[in-house]
Simulated scan of single mutants.
Amino acid sequence: MKPLFFVHIPKTAGTSFRHGAERAFGFDKIVYDYGQDASQTSVLTRECMYGESPDPWRLYRRSLDNQAMMLAGHVTAAKYVPLCGVDRAVTFVREPLQRAASEYSHFQRIHQYKGSFRDFMKIPLMLDRQSSIFKGVDVEAIGMVGLTERYSESLELINARFGIDIAQREDNRGKPQVGELHDIAPEDEQEFRKLNPLDLALYERCRKLFESRIQLYRDNLPFAHARLTQFDAERVGGWAWWEGGADTPVDVEVWVNDEHRDTVSATQLRPSMARLKLPRGGYVGFQLKVNLSAGDRVQCRVAETGQWFPPGPRRVAVASN
């Protein structure tokens, strides 16, 4: 079985998750990549990724030989998704302002950072910190995106999805409890929101995705990884596949202005997404020819379950002159 790929975003309860995974799988069954100089980075990762000739495939094959259950670290989603597959990827995201405040507190405690929170948030690495980690990988495609603020429910979904049993822990905390709020000056909050529009949008996207997923789980209905990627005057298109990679294609209803326009099956090849190792060999796309006008509202729905995507309608843009 392919190992899970845990994308550990700093200060999102990831340390609690990986320590829980160590107890569930065994420390020797997890391969860590926290960077060349990090003490947590596994010997195998140093050998394969931080020598003269980095070789991700060798790392993956050696991990399989060692029956590793998880590959994890402070890395971008794109780094190991081509090996493990996007359906095996797991991560947590957190409300951006609180996450940044927690990382600032961590830098003060661990690295003796002396600057102000305003100074810290302007460090280039800290700008849109979470969204930069997902560059090139849509969050809708990732096997499971949990929320730090709803850690228990997220862990329940992860365990159910992958048939594992990771217990809840709370480690590396800057606050007494996971999710407890940091006090932030209003002027700092205002500045943060100006500097991090992508992270704010990403979190809202993930929050709505989580709400949809947890409701389907409670209703004992399957979740579909799905995204609307094209909606204009002539075409509506996107991609969809079932959680767990079932071979059955997803039937997608296309709705325009709250009316069901047509139903199509997601069976078209998406070669641009091949590096994600998609289910169904990449034959997960759909497209419908339409005749729409500027301002029309477009939304899709999974026919079998009623799962809407995106969560709210999108409007067809006005054509530029």
Rank of each mutant, 00 (worst) to 15 (best):
P3L: 02
F17P: 08
H19E: 15
S42L: 00
E47F: 10
C48E: 03
P56Y: 10
Y60K: 02
R61M: 09
R62C: 07
D65T: 04
Q67G: 11
Q67D: 15
M69P: 00
L71Q: 05
A78N: 08
L83A: 07
G85V: 06
L97D: 05
Q98H: 12
R99K: 11
S102P: 11
S105P: 00
D138T: 10
V139L: 05
A141V: 10
G143A: 07
L155N: 05
L155D: 04
N159R: 03
G163Q: 08
E170C: 07
G174V: 14
L181D: 08
P186C: 02
L195E: 07
P197E: 01
Y203W: 15
R213L: 06
N220E: 11
N220Y: 04
P222M: 05
F223T: 13
V236Q: 05
A246I: 03
V254L: 05
H260A: 14
D262E: 13
D262M: 08
L269T: 05
P271F: 06
Y283V: 01
F286M: 04
L292A: 00
R297V: 00
R297M: 10
R297Q: 13
Q299I: 15
R301L: 03
A303G: 00
E304C: 00
G306R: 09
V316I: 04
V316L: 02
N321T: 10
